[in-house]
Each structure stands twice: as C-alpha cells, then as structure tokens.
Amino acid sequence: MASTIDIQTTTKKKQKPLQHELGFGIHFTDHMFIMDYSEGKGWYDPRIVPYQPIVLDPAAKVFHYGQTIFEGLKAFKTEEGKVLLFRPDRNIQRLNRSNERLGVPHIDEDLALEALKKVIAVDQDWIPTEPGTSLYVRPFVIATQPALGVDASTHYQFIIIMSPVGNYYTEGVNPVKIFVENEYVRAVKGGIGEAKTAGNYAASLKAQEIAKEKGYSQVLWLDGVHRKYIEEVGSMNVFFKINGTVYTPKLNGSILDGITRSSIIQLLRHWDIPVEESTMSIEDLYNDAKSGALEEAFGTGTAAVISPIGELNWRGEQLTIADGKTGEVSSKLYDTLTGIQRGTKPDPFGWMVEVTL
C-alpha cells in the first residue's frame, strides 16, 4: 500500500458562508481525499484533490446493493489556533468494523488517520470558530464495481469530505421533542444495526418524516422483536437519569456503538455519577416518569454532542421530561465535553488529537 499522499490543491477557492448561517452539512470545503481499491491490488493512490463530483458507472454496486459505510467526526480550532480532533482513532476503528460487516476490505488505520489530518490541514481556514460551530468530517466508502451480480464489489473508493457546520438541531442545546416509533422497525440483532451504513438510515427516513409532520425532531426506536425495549434515536444514543442513576440501553447488536456515548459514560463515572448499561422498556420509562423518578433525558452523538430531551410521545401519550427544560447533568456534560473539544477545559482522558499544520 502506498504511504505517500499526493496533494493537488485548487487555485479556485470557494466563497465561505457566514458562520451564523452555516446550517448542517450544506456547505463543503475546497478539497477532498480519495483512495481507490481493486481486488488483487489493494488500496492505492491516496490523494487530496479539489472538491469535485464523483463519476460512477450506472451499474456501480453502491447504487443497487447499498454496499457503503460512513463515519462522522469534528475538527475544532482553539483560541490559540491549534486544530483538534475528537477521538479520531475510535472513528477509524469503527469504520473498519462497519467495513467487516458489509464485506468491504480493511483500510489501514494509520493511513486513514494521516489522510484525515492532511485534508483538514489543507482546508484549515474552513474551520469555523463561533460557539456551536465546527468542521464536520465525513469519511465514507462506496462500492464502485460496475456489475449487477449480488455479491461483494471488487472495487471501492474511500473518500473524505468536510463541511463547516452549526448546530445539528435548530433547537440548539435546548430540549428536543422525540416521537416513539411503534409501526416501523429499523434493525434487529444479527442485521446491520450496529454498522454505520446507509441502509440503517434509509430504514429510518419514513418514520422520521411522519414524526416531523407531528412536530417532533426525531424518532426513538424500539427493538425490532418485542417492540418494547428502547434502543436509540435516529441520530443519537439515549440516556435517562432515574433516581440519581443514569441509564442507557446496552449494546445488543442493533445499536450503534457511539463514540460520544462511550465518552459520556466515561465522564459520568469520572464524576462518580452512577451509570448503567441495561435493557430498558418504554413502559417502565413512562411509569418512572409518572412516579417522579425520571429526572432528565438526553441524546448523544457527534452531530448534536448532547441534546436534552424535553418530550416523548408514545402511542399518543405525551411525556414531558424535566418540565421541558435542560437538566443539570445534561448541561454539565455539554459544557464539559464541548470545552474539552475546543481546548478550553482540561482533557484528563487524552481524547483530543492535534493536527499539525
């Protein structure tokens, strides 16, 4: 495998958007990373090129069989001008776990990290600095072999694109409203629920559309077998503080192993706040709320970081959590984690990785 990344910079720079008008995933930087794979040759020709369309044959397998995986992470610029990445090694490791599940060849993790750092360094002036903003980095793999046989592709591309972003939810860090899905199923153990692949998200879109029509930001998924156990929100893992203990659904083969999720668990234990990974039923959660035991709820993910949950709707029954306000633990977690990410708070865990410019 080649270890040198070729860099081809553009002289035609885009006009950057105003930081308070970024939105999420709408604008894209001047450059991208690409690396190719072919059976018998392996991964080759790693390069940074001007941001451009991808040209694919209409028979490319990604279009027909959905053989694709992706990741999401963020780059931050400190007040001193340092560029930091949050736990990028974990994203690369998870990318390869998703690759394994989808039959995609393993990517050298050292090379992937080098590619991340170099493409960010090339477009470092795209990193926004206003509160709540960051540079969202999207690595992904697509199957490019032009063939309609139902088997794994023999050709792939590994690509990294980047987007300056604001808050994922328009609510910002204010509580969001979540609709509990009863009709549709997203994933089951043994399927692809724990892989970060397009099919997982395609399975969620219809339910999310219905939820938005009802005035809800996202969908909370229940398990696909019993339709009663809490799993995750479409873009977040979920946590519930009940009688002083924080609970989150345990990983069961159909829930994404969130990097923010694991970081939150580590932070809570660092603060000596009890936290348990367990099987949780939606009925028990509603009973805890009615008894006053449910104190707060929040979602975690790369895009939103921490998103307080102010309301759930299950079978038409609305459940207001913490009077619809941001809870104390949610607020502390958000302030601490974003502070670590931006270099304004101590990083006792060694999570942040500096990009050499």
Rank of each mutant, 00 (worst) to 15 (best):
T245C: 05
D272I: 01
E276V: 15
P249N: 07
E276Y: 10
E276K: 15
D347V: 04
G339L: 00
D272F: 00
E232N: 07
Q218S: 11
V246R: 10
G339V: 00
P348C: 02
L319W: 03
S291Y: 02
Y229P: 05
T344P: 05
V219M: 06
K250Q: 09
W314K: 15
A289D: 13
H270C: 00
S217F: 00
G234S: 10
G316T: 13
N313T: 14
L333Y: 08
Y247T: 00
N237Y: 04
V238W: 05
R315G: 12
G316D: 14
D223G: 04
K214Q: 13
W221Y: 10
I230A: 03
Y334G: 09
N252F: 02
L285C: 06
Y247I: 02
S331Y: 04
K250M: 03
E311T: 04
G310T: 06
A211G: 15
E232S: 11
V246P: 11
G299V: 07
G253E: 01
P346D: 09
A304R: 05
I255R: 13
T320M: 03
E277I: 00
N252Q: 10
T326Q: 10
I306V: 12
T338D: 12
A303N: 03
S235K: 00
L267T: 05
W271H: 10
P274A: 05
G253Y: 02
Q208V: 04
E328Q: 11
M280Q: 10
G324D: 08
S263Y: 05
S278A: 11
G343E: 00
V219C: 07
M236C: 12
G324L: 06
L333Q: 08
F240I: 09
V219Q: 12
G224D: 11
T344G: 09
R227H: 14
D284F: 02
A211C: 08
G327S: 02
A303D: 01
D323M: 02
L337E: 09
E232Q: 12
H270M: 01
V329R: 07
F240Q: 11
I259E: 10
E295H: 14
S217W: 01
R269N: 13
D272G: 03
K290E: 14
D335T: 08
I255Q: 08
G253I: 01
Q318S: 10
S278E: 13
A211H: 10
Q318E: 15
R269T: 03
D323C: 04
G310P: 03
D335P: 01
G258N: 15
Y286T: 13
D347G: 05
P346R: 01
T344W: 00
N237I: 08
K241I: 10
A322S: 03
L294G: 06
N287R: 13
V246G: 11
I259K: 09
F239A: 02
I259R: 08
R227D: 08
S278H: 06
V225P: 06
S254N: 15
T320F: 02
T302A: 09
L256P: 15
T245W: 04
K214N: 11
I309R: 06
I230W: 01
T344L: 04
M236S: 15
G343C: 00
A322P: 06
Y286V: 13
L337Q: 14
I255S: 11
W271A: 07
I242Y: 01
V329T: 15
